[in-house]
Design a binder for these strands. Structure first.
Lengths: 335, 335
DNA sequence: ATGAAAGCGCTAACAC
DNA sequence: GTGTTAGCGCTTTCAT
């Protein structure tokens, strides 16, 4: 059931069979046909391990995610996958499994096994040790979403994204805006939350606006977290309520919208709500957002590592676009 | 940078190093320590391809998904991943990429490369050819969610799930209930949508209730689809409106709820809405649902293939539980 | 407790 | 256009 069998049956040599199977041009067309036919009949299944051993290439790339069940990661993963499949590469998934998962083990044991030829990291900031461990393998690496000291990265500029959002709100006349974001997810070391918050603060300051500490809330980057944050925000007297809430993700924004409704507030009549992402749900409910395209980012990242693999080039990566999509959750502040 | 280097440095033989690295008991503890230390210093990285070639085991299992960006698949994938990681296995993801993806290619080229030791299929019904191709590899296989002729499967009984939902609605006094489901997703050959619809129809009939053709809608198993279906349902005169809507997924139910709100209908005052899944969002908005646990199903499936791999046993799989979670979107029909 | 030697199934020079 | 010959980096008898 190996290449050898085919060789015996066809009376050819192993090498010729190997070449034929890969459709190399130095093999006669008739030979290729014959080999393929026999391989089919025999139910031949190639061994990637053998090929990998011989070539040093596994034709697989690893994708490392902090957790799997977040909209952004799923979308990006899809993008990486699409490009990989096009190139005939397999995708091996390394899920750090969030706070509970054993990050160390994932980084040491599995990934370093030469099972993949390259790595795409999602929103991960590596510490010194991890970087060192990974460099050991000398694999091409790129990270999506979040700056990566020492590594190439594709993603939007989170500070700019926050500024776009704040500019929009201020342009409408808002001066009292709250921010719902998230903290670093226990040990996951994700930079994005901090960057967006910093971008928010900077942009507010640039507009000469005050940033109230109690209007910077943790929405845990989830829908439920958004609801909680919104509830806290809207529980106060109307006078001490922000006129707009900027959320670091659409999922949280959706939660804030629900909280507003529960508090009897109209959006954007009583309060404007704005998110980041371009989530499908947001489109349906008319959420204004700063949209990005994680699928495209995934594709870009995959293409980048593939190019580095094939051509050895590690050129600069194109910037990922983000643009304001004004829908119906933002408007001028109530008088 | 291989096992050989370590052997040379330590003055041991390749075999001993190999054994030491794997912590085999026949090796002296001091030797193990020494070998591990040297391996560390040398920055040794094991080659899974070589080990795989020698043992015939890749220590990896493949997970095949029709599309990646659905709540259920992501959750199940997470469950499979968790169990695999516990066992020290890697997970290679085969995304068929939905209608646009090249299903054939995924099934032939990549998967059959002996890159994985076993397969977990998500909600996929294979056709004859595919089954034959996969059987070729003689890998343990189990499918999650959806019956699989000839294969072991873990998942809820979709017909029963639908019955639970209908029973709840009828128990409240509803007699006019609509169904929002989905069709087979273009070429993905997923059985679940049909089973739930059949279950709905059967249960209705069992309750002596009429099933109106125009109250069986396609919600595309998505939030947006649910909104559309709901809009269609609620656009009619109050008299010809169902008093309850049963959705084959929480995501669609969420959409129907939004449509109800847009139509000025109160839930459950004017119309009851009920879903299937146990989606996080549903919990937040108080959606009544028939909950299942895809993460647990993923774990079960992973454990099953792992057991078959390790012990050669392919015993029966435990049934996946589903239970009614009554929240606030279902109530007695309006008089 | 350790070593020697034979492979695992393929690819890649290098001949012809 | 095809065959020969070496490996790729491990694991695994079988010895010792």
């Amino acid at each position: 059931m190996g290449i050898q069998e085919i060789a015996t049956v066809t009376g050819l040599s192993k090498s010729t069979v190997s070449r034929a199977l890969r459709g190399m041009s130095s093999v006669a067309d008739t030979t290729i046909d014959q080999v393929r036919r026999v391989a089919d009949e025999l139910g031949y299944v190639p061994s990637s391990a053998a090929a990998g051993l011989a070539t040093g290439r596994q034709r697989a790339v690893g994708v490392v995610v902090p957790v799997i069940d977040r909209w952004f990661y799923v979308q990006a993963l899809g993008g990486v996958d699409a490009e990989l499949r096009r190139a005939g590469y397999d995708l091996v998934l390394y899920n750090l499994g969030g706070p509970g998962g054993d990050r160390d083990r994932a980084f040491r044991r599995s990934m370093l096994r030469h099972r993949v030829d390259a790595l795409v990291l999602l929103s991960l900031v590596l510490d010194e040790t991890e970087r060192a461990e990974l460099e050991l393998t000398r694999h091409p690496m790129v990270v999506i979403g979040g700056p990566a000291p020492g590594l190439r990265n594709v993603g939007v500029d989170d500070v700019v994204v926050a500024a776009i959002a704040v500019d929009h709100l201020c342009g409408l006349g808002h001066r009292e805006v709250a921010y719902v974001g998230g903290q670093d997810e226990a040990g996951m070391n994700v930079a994005v939350p901090w960057l967006r918050r910093d971008g928010f603060v900077d942009a507010m300051v640039a507009h000469g606006l005050a940033v109230r500490e109690d209007w910077i809330l943790d929405g845990r980057f989830s829908f439920a977290g958004g609801v909680d944050a919104g509830a806290a925000l809207f529980a106060t007297a109307p006078a001490s309520r922000p006129t707009a809430v900027f959320c670091a993700s659409d999922e949280m924004a959706l939660g804030v919208m629900l909280a507003a409704r529960r508090a009897g507030l109209s959006v954007p009549g009583d309060v404007s709500v704005l998110g980041i992402d371009g989530h499908e749900y947001g489109e349906v409910v008319g959420l204004t957002t700063v949209a990005q395209d994680p699928v495209a980012q995934g594709r870009t990242a995959a293409r980048a590592v593939l190019a580095e693999l094939d051509e050895g080039v590690a050129g600069p990566l194109p910037a990922a676009p983000a643009h304001l999509v004004v829908r119906s959750t933002t408007g001028v502040p109530r008088a």
